[in-house]
Simulated scan of single mutants.
Amino acid sequence: MTYSLQRRVFCGFALAAVVPVHAQVAGLGDAINKAGRQRMLSQRMSKAWFGLGQGIQAETARRVLDQSMALFDRQLVELKTFAPAGETRDTYVLLESAWSDYKSLLVGAVPLQDRAKSVLDQAGKVLALAHKGTGLFEQQAGKPGAKLVNVAGRQRMLSQRMAQFYLANSWNVESALSLREISKAREEFVPALELLRNAPEATAEIRQELVLADNQWLFFDNALKARVTSLKAAADVFVSSENLLQVMDRVTGMYARVLG
């Protein structure tokens, strides 16, 4: 795939990602999908913020940040409304507070290196709560297929987490931590693809999408392994992470529909 084609695929997803499939949560499969998407968005927003700060895919990064924030806001309202009383509802109240703090870091000021660690830290707090909410919805579903929706959705997050830490490292922000987290996420991503591929619930359509995921993973992994810290190398990571995200978002939706 050429670089220009990668850009074209990516830009299409950036626009499609903000169009809600449902005006509200349609069921537990949809809840797991959207809750897991909040995890991804926590990392995608910081990736875009780092891109803006370094002039990496700046125009696209701005669009990704704005659209991701809008989508996070909308899905948070939907999930909080859908969440039953108790631990799940309490988790989304906490997430709402953490999101407010995170959003205040992302907007209203030009991205600067001296604020980057705070953005990274708050992205992690939002991620942890979004992950907890996803797990609680999975437990409520009580079906084996619910785990597959969660795992597929987590692949979306891992794609953005690796890109986030790559861009953090390229800005000399938490470099040792960033390299460790990229390695850890890489080690988790590949076996999860195998789990999704070999699951009894995997339809022919899902397996076909996972072949595309394998191809996009190769592009992304090669970009991550580039030792040259340049604007082009970082742009390759940014774009290829979006392409991988696009495929894994489709796979997650497919598993969510199988679950019902």
Rank of each mutant, 00 (worst) to 15 (best):
Q140W: 06
T134L: 13
R7L: 12
L127T: 12
W217G: 00
V247W: 15
R207N: 08
A123K: 04
L106M: 15
V239W: 12
R7Y: 07
K147F: 10
R39M: 08
M1V: 04
L41E: 09
Q75N: 07
L136M: 15
M45S: 06
T2R: 11
R227Y: 10
L193Y: 09
T252F: 02
E242A: 08
R186A: 08
A226Y: 04
S42K: 02
S183T: 10
Q160T: 02
Q43M: 00
A234S: 13
T91M: 08
E87Y: 11
L127M: 13
G29S: 12
P111D: 05
M69V: 11
L129T: 00
V93M: 12
R197Y: 15
G27R: 08
T2E: 11
L15E: 11
F189M: 08
L179P: 01
S240L: 04
A70Y: 01
D90Y: 12
E181Q: 04
L15C: 09
A26D: 09
L196E: 02
A256T: 02
E194V: 09
N215P: 03
C11D: 15
M40C: 04
D221Q: 05
Q140I: 07
F82Q: 07
N222I: 12
A130H: 09
V247A: 03
M45Y: 00
F219T: 03
K47H: 04
V107G: 15
G12R: 14
L218C: 13
D249W: 03
Q38G: 06
A234P: 01
Q246M: 13
F10I: 10
